[in-house]
Design a protein around this nucleic acid. Structure first.
Lengths: 351, 351
DNA sequence: CTGAAAGCGCTAACAA
DNA sequence: TTGTTAGCGCTTTCAG
């Protein structure tokens, strides 16, 4: 005799239930829901009907296990609290979800330990691809993806491997526009607050700045080359260091908008005004830049372009077995003039 | 005869390899890496050694499939571009990762379509638990988690089900402190820019404001109750509407910091100054609030507390089969006075 | 305490 | 075109 009948057996609802209800084999169900063209229309209809009625959806884990594809895309960013990244993440998510992928986000916070953990976790979850959108990273780690044969995209750098693409940002263009703009306004003494210099992209931006300075026949002053860390607090600290100097610059370029906002704050506290006392230029053009007081002149780097290029690259790798890509896109940057830049005070401007 | 030997067979590295190398059964390997106490110390040592040498880590998909536990926690937020959420996400991620969980983030952007998709995707990925940290959501969807027996935590609201916990934010406290602060400074005409009123938490905050007004014997003016949408642009639009009014308030409370920053921007453009022309109070106390010009007086809601309480609740549900919890924590809020509040102009203050 | 074996739900040969 | 079947890598009874 059977055990007492379980009260309304918690219906399992797997592919078998659907097969039974549609009176076909589980293989046919599998083919149907995977849109394999060779399924007879009549059977397919029955399957879809059963799927509908049962409210069935396939078990992702099982699918992943057998197919070896997780439909998971990793996204590693520097720090999620820098507004540039949420904007990028949003775009990335939109595109990925649209294509049926889920995204696994993780931030390194510029910490080697956390970075290592990020990479490991991505590997463990068997992401189908990974975008490393950090402003620099321990390069050794990158190769782990290539070795595991996981397609990857990087900003600025990355291993030269067939499975990895580099998205090159044209920092030069935007920064040069910024320097020219400043020079045209009459500035000769321009400071630069960089990101952490152990990060590649921070160096790249700094180099681009120095190069532009040179191109405009301006001389760099080492004392005005300050190392920041891409955060609000970092911008504040950097500006404090700048103000402690004997001789002040008349304009400041920052390697990101958060830094610039930190600078604005210090200037406000010191009762110095922008752009009268100092002209200020940021980098990234986060949405917020339009809302600072006064609104921030900044170099726009489109996170939309970046995110789309990243996902596109990853998906194209995943789509084809042959690998005719590994192109590297170039992301443009350009100056957006708002209200933090103006002519230097007469005293300083008079050469 | 065998086929031509595959060139350096891409070593599979599964639990079997480890078992072979450690000269034990796969069951023992499984037990060891799952820290089952009953494994003989000697064998365990051999297993760990093999794991080490092979650099083995278990296949998450397979594990999830057989155990029914994905070690994935869902996190649904309103919109990732509102700085409050990244701060919350970061905290949430820290705690979750520490406990061995991965997190699946998704934002609703206040869009019912997207929300539905979020919920569905979480369900499909079989998250072990989900935190709905939105400022309101279509409540019908919530029950889907309860029905699927997935533990959930909500801010402010949520179905009364044993598997779901509600984190109650004590809006009243902080908002009341804000109103009192304003009243003490001499303000009698206080406007309030709410979030989208179809969202529960927006209504709750508005109600708390109204109640405080009443408690301080101040009368509400319907014209000064503006509906915003928690964004920078929304704050800007709301303030434009306020300025279009015949009679102006002397102080403005906003239901979040982004709204307040939008307001500051409009005031700046209109050459009105804060706090001389208008006192302004935000809500959330995002890190940025300290950096606005002038720094924003705001009501702090600790996203750290929120995130920690959320993860803790989820994990406690997951840990025990019996369900002795379903407690609902209360998250405190309190006023942080900075520089956007001051006495109203004489003309207006003179009663 | 350990190992053999039975699946978890699904996809992908292979046969029919 | 469809169905049968063998696993994917792991956890977990169940014997021993």
């Amino acid at each position: 005799m059977k055990r007492s009948p379980k009260p309304a057996a918690p219906q399992k609802l797997d592919i078998r239930s659907v097969a039974a209800r549609a009176r076909v084999s589980i293989a046919t169900v599998s083919r149907t829901i995977n849109h394999i063209a060779t399924v007879d229309a009549v059977l397919a209809a029955r399957v879809w009907k059963a799927v509908e009625e049962l409210n069935y959806f396939p078990n992702t884990q099982a699918r992943a296990l057998v197919s070896g594809r997780s439909r998971l895309l990793g996204l590693i960013v520097s720090e999620i609290t820098n507004p540039f990244f949420p904007e990028l993440i949003q775009e990335f998510e939109n595109v990925a979800v649209e294509r049926g992928y889920e995204i696994l986000i993780s931030s390194t916070n510029y910490d080697p330990k956390k970075t290592e953990s990020c990479v490991r976790r991505m590997l463990e979850r068997k992401v189908d691809g990974v975008a490393i959108m950090t402003f620099g990273i321990e390069e050794l780690l990158l190769d782990r993806f290539a070795v595991s044969d996981i397609p990857s995209v990087f900003m600025d750098l990355g291993p030269k491997r067939p499975s990895s693409t580099t998205l090159t940002v044209d920092y030069k263009q935007g920064i040069d526009e910024g320097v020219r703009h400043l020079a045209k306004l009459g500035h000769r003494k321009i400071a630069f607050i960089s990101g952490p210099l152990r990060l590649r992209s921070a160096q790249t931006r700094k180099a681009a700045f120095l190069e532009s300075l040179h191109a405009h026949k301006l001389t760099a002053n080492d004392a005005w080359m300050i190392e920041g860390d891409h955060t609000l607090d970092g911008g504040r600290d950097a500006m404090h260091r700048l103000l402690a100097l004997k001789q002040w610059p008349t304009a400041i370029m920052c390697s990101n908008d958060m830094t610039a906002i930190g600078v604005q704050h210090v200037l406000f506290e010191a009762k110095l005004t922008v752009p009268q006392d100092f002209s200020l230029i940021g980098f990234d053009d986060v949405h917020l830049a339009e809302y600072t007081i006064p609104p921030l002149t900044t170099v726009r780097m489109s996170c939309k372009d970046l995110a789309q290029a990243a996902v596109a690259s990853l998906l194209s790798h995943l789509a084809s077995d042959d690998t005719p890509h590994a192109r590297s896109s170039a992301i443009p940057t350009r100056l957006i003039v708002r209200q933090t830049t103006g002519a230097p005070r007469k005293k300083a401007a008079a050469k």
